[in-house]
Simulated assay, not measured.
Amino acid sequence: MKGQTCGLCGKADGEVRQEYRTPNGRVTKSAVSYAHSWVLPAESCRDTTECRMKLESVQLEKQVNIHGQESKCYSVEPVLRCLPGCFPVKTTFVTVGFHCVPADTTLNRSEAHVACRCTAQCA
């Protein structure tokens, strides 16, 4: 099965530079970002499992000025976030790339949530 596997355990082909390949085929730079990419998110905050999270693109919180133009930046890889009705109880920093566009561009919406607690009406 050498080189015929994929997933959290890699390809098992002896090559180590691309071991952190995400489900969508991209290679991450950190083990944390890699592991987060393989988490299966919950469908709703009423999910009976402990994983009350989803993967979503996030906006960079700091102001960015590119070529003299105010810009907003969004992660090119999704990060773990708590589902609506839940809030983070533990977080960690992950390394992700960002794509920036002029601030007046209309787009849908960097910190990843590692564990969540939900409100009484949701849990």
Rank of each mutant, 00 (worst) to 15 (best):
T92Y: 13
V39C: 02
G85Q: 06
E77Y: 08
N65K: 14
S71D: 03
S75G: 09
T22C: 05
E61H: 13
G14D: 03
L55Y: 00
T92P: 02
T92Q: 15
P102K: 01
T5S: 12
G85D: 05
G7M: 00
P41H: 04
S57A: 13
D47S: 15
R81F: 01
K54S: 05
C118L: 05
P84S: 04
F93G: 11
S110R: 11
T48F: 12
V76Y: 06
V96L: 01
T105V: 12
S44T: 15
S75M: 07
K62Y: 07
V101C: 02
G3W: 05
Q121R: 14
Y20W: 12
V64T: 10
E19N: 10
K2V: 15
L83Y: 06
L55C: 06
P78W: 03
S44I: 05
R81T: 08
P23W: 03
K62C: 07
A103N: 05
C118E: 04
L60I: 00
V32W: 07
H99Y: 08
C6G: 03
T95E: 15
A42P: 02
N24W: 09
A123P: 02
G14W: 04
G10D: 03
Q4D: 14
H67V: 10
H99T: 08
C45F: 04
Q4P: 00
G10C: 03
L55W: 05
P78A: 06
V64Y: 01
C6N: 07
V89E: 04
H67Q: 14
Y34S: 00
H67C: 11
R21L: 08
G68E: 08
E70C: 04
L40C: 10
C82Y: 02
R21T: 15
Q69T: 14
Q18K: 10
Q69W: 06
S57D: 07
R46S: 14
R117Q: 13
Y20V: 01
M53P: 00
K11M: 11
R52S: 05
G3D: 06
W38P: 00
S33G: 08
H36W: 03
E61N: 09
D104S: 09
R117N: 12
Q18N: 15
H67I: 10
K2R: 15
C45D: 02
L40M: 10
L80Y: 03
F98M: 04
F87Y: 11
K11D: 13
E50K: 11
Q121S: 14
E50S: 13
E77N: 11
K72W: 00
P102A: 02
A31C: 12
S57L: 11
V27C: 09
M1L: 15
E43G: 13
P78H: 07
L83C: 03
N108F: 08
C116Q: 01
L40F: 09
A103E: 05
P23H: 03
A35T: 10
E70D: 14
V64M: 07
C82R: 02
L40S: 09
E70R: 11
C45R: 04
I66P: 07
E15L: 10
R117K: 10
V96C: 01
E19Q: 09
S71N: 07
R21M: 14
T106S: 13
G68T: 08
S71A: 15
E77G: 06
P78M: 05
